[in-house]
Simulated assay, not measured.
Amino acid sequence: MSTEPDLRDDIRAFPFPFTQDTYRYSINLGPAGQPVHTPAGQWGDSVVHIDGRYSEELAQRRDILRRDPSRRQVLAHMRPAAWDAMLTLMRELSLAYPDTMTLHREAAGRFHWINRRTGIDQRFAYGDPRTLPQEPLAFIGDQVQEDIVLLDQREAQLFVDAGLVCFASNWSFGFNLGMSFLQVHGPVPRIHDTGIAARAEKFAMRLQPGEPYRRTNWSLSVGGRLDQSTETYPEWGPARGRTLDLEDAAFGAEVHLRVEVQHLVRLAESGCVMFLIRTYQLPLEVIAQVEPWRDRLAAVLAELPEDMADYKGFLVYRDRAADWLRARAPAAP
């Protein structure tokens, strides 16, 4: 099986996040599993998504975890939720990719998991760590491209108490571990004054098992690097300031539209909420090839308030990105 990414597939399945020429923070939630059609293709058929970058991104995650094991942490009271998350993701994978992923229940509490993409053939007893080669969040995290956050619900709040996050966008899972939902979103401009954060938390706490929801989030990034956690800021942060010196061709290749498809799933056994984050990126030079995307992204960037562009980390090159996209439009006859 080839490990080379198919860029055409990247375009067809890219979750372009804008439906109008302006953008403001919103809860932006809708039922999961319903395909969204775009000018280039469609996305959103399933809760988990495997594409041509599967092997590459799993290898990146393993390398990140070797260098920084703190990217995966499970507080003691969340160990049952980690098992619940693993089994839930196995079910989602087997539903989405039945030709290569299968989960069989062999007896009460005993399962047989096969992932033909990675060569895994594993029988295990649910809840018994002796029957897995790794702890459950590590085992399943090595088979999905999504980052995983597990939220405990107590005291009428949600708390970030477990997860495996290697591809964060300018935040730190280790720093946020143990924080409440509202504390985690404290730095985001506008969402507290408008009540968006509180409404989003209440919505998540009303989730029912078997009824997952999703939303998108987005930013611009430089270089196409997936791991943009605050722990590695010295490795990727300085590149943002150098974008203004790039030639036009290099600017279009280096600056990416970065989109997260985020799923909220109520775990049936533990009652916790699983928050999945799948990150997609396309360089502006590719975005510009799809005319509706080019024109809409240019309009969104030009109109976006400065505080939002600053929080998302691209204020320094926001105007150039909008101008660059507009300059790619064909001249009027």
Rank of each mutant, 00 (worst) to 15 (best):
S2R: 08
R8P: 02
D10R: 00
D10G: 03
F14N: 01
T19E: 08
T19S: 10
D21E: 13
D21C: 09
S26I: 07
P31H: 00
P35C: 01
A40Q: 02
V48H: 02
Y54K: 00
E57P: 10
A59Y: 11
Q60W: 07
R61N: 10
R62L: 15
I64C: 06
R66S: 12
D68N: 11
R71M: 07
Q73R: 08
Q73G: 04
V74Y: 00
V74Q: 03
A76I: 10
P80V: 05
W83K: 09
D84R: 01
D84Y: 03
M86L: 14
M86C: 14
M86Q: 11
E92P: 15
P98A: 00
D99A: 13
H104V: 15
A107N: 12
R110C: 15
N115K: 04
R116G: 14
I120H: 11
D121Y: 03
R123T: 10
G127L: 05
D128T: 09
P129C: 03
E135V: 11
L137I: 12
I140M: 11
G141A: 04
D142L: 14
Q143I: 10
D147T: 13
L150T: 09
D152P: 06
Q153Y: 04
Q153H: 07
R154M: 08
R154F: 05
E155W: 02
Q157M: 10
F159T: 09
V160Q: 02
V160C: 05
D161W: 00
A168F: 00
S172T: 07
L177E: 02
M179E: 11
S180I: 07
F181V: 14
F181A: 07
V184E: 02
H185A: 03
R190G: 06
I191R: 00
D193S: 11
A197K: 03
A197T: 12
R199P: 15
E201A: 09
K202H: 12
K202N: 15
F203D: 09
Q208M: 12
E211C: 13
T216V: 06
T216P: 09
L220Y: 01
S221L: 03
S221N: 05
G223I: 05
D227L: 01
E231F: 05
E231C: 08
T232M: 07
Y233I: 15
E235I: 08
E235T: 12
G237T: 06
P238N: 01
A239F: 11
R242K: 13
D245F: 13
D248L: 12
A250L: 13
E254V: 12
V259M: 01
V259D: 00
L264S: 12
V265I: 14
V265S: 07
E269R: 06
G271H: 01
G271K: 02
L276I: 12
R278Q: 14
Y280R: 01
Y280E: 06
Y280H: 08
L282E: 01
L284Y: 01
Q289W: 04
E291R: 06
R294T: 09
R296C: 13
R296H: 02
V300W: 02
A309T: 10
D310I: 11
G313M: 08
F314W: 06
L315F: 05
V316S: 13
V316K: 11
R318H: 04
R320C: 10
A321K: 03
D323T: 13
D323L: 09
L325V: 11
R326K: 08
A332N: 14
